[in-house]
Amino acid sequence: MSEALHFHFNVDGENFTSAGEASVQVKKKLRQLGMPPETIRCVSIAMYEGEINMVIHAGGGNADVYVNEDEIVIVLEDHGPGIPNVELAMQEGYSTAPETIRSLGFGAGMGLPNMKRYTDDMKIDTVIGTGTTITMKVYVK
């Protein structure tokens, strides 16, 4: 695998129950590629949290996954409202999600912290009123 494999997904902002389809697809593909189980777990959880965030806060977006021999790069891009205070958003338990989301088991303020927890590198580029791009890397161990 000299060149990165690239997978692209549109995350539907309207359909909360189908959120996670991209993560599940990525999980399947990584499994087919023979990636280590823990690497697959990290990538798919981080991506799922990102997908859920895009559905809750940004009306959907794009997810791109690049699979290299030594690392997997996940790029999540949305055109939502942006994150006013990234430091606050990174705190476990801090949430701006509406109550309806909580009844579905999400909105506990663990999304971004989990994305950081399960990746080796995470970068947040956010512009108020324009959108957010999150780039995450998981090293293949």
Partner: peptide, 15 residues
């Protein structure tokens, strides 16, 4: 005790 469809996705992704 949560029984919505996201439970299955989480179970799958968390393995």
């Amino acid at each position: 005790i949560m029984t919505n469809i996201n439970v299955v996705a989480v179970a799958s992704l968390a393995d």
